[in-house]
Design a binder for these strands. Sequence first.
DNA 1: CCTTGGCACTCAGATCAGGCGAGTGCCAAC
DNA 2: GTTGGCACTCGCCTGATCTGAGTGCCAAGG
Lengths: 337, 337
Amino acid sequence: MHDDRKLAVLRAIVEDYVATEEPVGSKALVERHGLGVSPATVRNDMAVLEEEGFITQPHTSAGRIPTDKGYRLFVDRLTNLKPMSSAERRAIATILDGAVDLDDVVQRSVRLLSQLTRQVAVVQYPTLSRSTVRHVELVAITPSRLLVILILSTGRVEQRLVELDATLDDAELGELRSRLNVAAAGKVIGEAATALRDAVPEGDAGPMSAIVDTLVDAFSDHRSDERIAVGGAANLARFGESFDTAVRPLLEALEEHVVLLKLLGEAHTGGAVTVRIGAEGPYQELASTSVVATGYGPGDDALATLGIVGPTRMDYPGSMAAVRAVARYVSRILDQA
Amino acid sequence: MHDDRKLAVLRAIVEDYVATEEPVGSKALVERHGLGVSPATVRNDMAVLEEEGFITQPHTSAGRIPTDKGYRLFVDRLTNLKPMSSAERRAIATILDGAVDLDDVVQRSVRLLSQLTRQVAVVQYPTLSRSTVRHVELVAITPSRLLVILILSTGRVEQRLVELDATLDDAELGELRSRLNVAAAGKVIGEAATALRDAVPEGDAGPMSAIVDTLVDAFSDHRSDERIAVGGAANLARFGESFDTAVRPLLEALEEHVVLLKLLGEAHTGGAVTVRIGAEGPYQELASTSVVATGYGPGDDALATLGIVGPTRMDYPGSMAAVRAVARYVSRILDQA
DNA sequence: CCTTGGCACTCAGATCAGGCGAGTGCCAAC
DNA sequence: GTTGGCACTCGCCTGATCTGAGTGCCAAGG
């Protein structure tokens, strides 16, 4: 038996099943794909594939459907990323180029990804941890209340309100501002934190100390690391079938941003698009969903992750191509900013 | 026939149907509620209620369920807002008091509302349109690139990047900054826009002009008016029943923030909690969902709207109480800020 | 005039049997 | 190694039957 024909059969099964959502039988297979052999031959191949665990029968008198292992093989060895059509490329470019700020880039990316793949899209906001401090700004709201604004290289802006014991005039405020910026500007936030701490005189309990505390707190505040945008939940409606086994757990996971981050996080391996299929990894509740994700960020740094979540029965080549294309384009935009 | 008993029957039907999700028959009714009359009597009442359009039969040999009109009467005349338990009050207080900034307040409110009501919660970010300018800040990133930061009274921060033809030193920057703040600070954004325009010398094409253009653009940018937080979508899983008629259109609406805003917007009538039931209003696709919403904001201004969306068959008294409680508490927090 | 027990009637949903047909596994022939 | 033939399996569709909750109506009682 030709080993590559066996693979061709697997590929055909995956493609048909993804397209039709129905178990695929030997006869339909040879008709739809020009395999050049008889159904009987295909049946033999399928028997072997089943024995090896790549496909399975939902019930005795039905066709075959791919197992997780089958999808895995398909993704790893049989997938040539479907190149995006030029229309799609143009759509990505025009939609993302219209963005006015970081928030908008993320929002648009989510929307775009969900439309391209017709799946649920997830985009993590660029993390603080590797970004640098661009500027610290102080704004007096009243003489004793200060708004501390932190501007990061990624374009993210954090703000905190500080109540002071003392009051400050404009000159003192200006002096404080410049001391803060000298200490922190241009540094990665980890280093900025220590530099700021060092800039506070030993035993100081005045405004400077209070502000630095607030800033350091803002640095280490992982809320921003956990920020995530989700879009295309309406696409869940399309897998009306297994509501309880697939849709419900997924909806729950989408609310749990921590879980989502973990799911996406598995992807963080270089520039490649990562695929998690079915029960791979933890989260058994999500056994019937797959994740296609990749890192993105300016330069070669993967500051954050974006991807899609959908049923294991999904169009992997198309999804992977879309995820890669969007990630590349977003990265390019972040480069310019 | 006693008219108030008829109403009692309607109330009982609504309560039972909401609780059990099943059409309620005359016998079950008298058993569960101490109506003090026989099933036959109730049947007569029900026949009248049906004739008047408050209840209906899904099919001949079934019990009754409330119509939209029935729910409407129930909400308008038969509902005493369920007071929140003291535990619930405390939960609201502790969760919302922990918020660090406006974004966080909104996020927490959504989460809270969805948990209290077990429905999908929607919270609109406070709108720009009525808020005032607290401060304008300029930050030079390079001598010719400026980050313009707009801080509003609601705590919202908008930022824009401006490319200048000229370069500016620190002194010039400071002077510009103070001119901008003199013109805009403390004003409602509409007035701030005209004041800023007036502050630009006739025919000026320099930095001041470019910055003012950017600011005015940020004012009129309605993106921020349309910002919305959605939470608790997982609760949709609970109405597994009518997936296509109820869940799908709702999921789609949740993505369309414009639609959501319109839905919530109908609520803007003073401090009261507004209820839209089923096919009331436009959006026929949402015929089987109801909206419970109310305005909120500092003082008596309703800057924005928050509420929940769920099946017409929902616990109105509970939902209304929760919406009102959260809105009040959020308003109080905005008062302090 | 309202209420109540009685009673015949209706009809959705559950249960079951029979038949259909897609798909399989196996085998003998090429 | 491939192919046609063939008996077999079994999920699902269809139609028939049964059950029971719930109704509408009526005649009797307060």
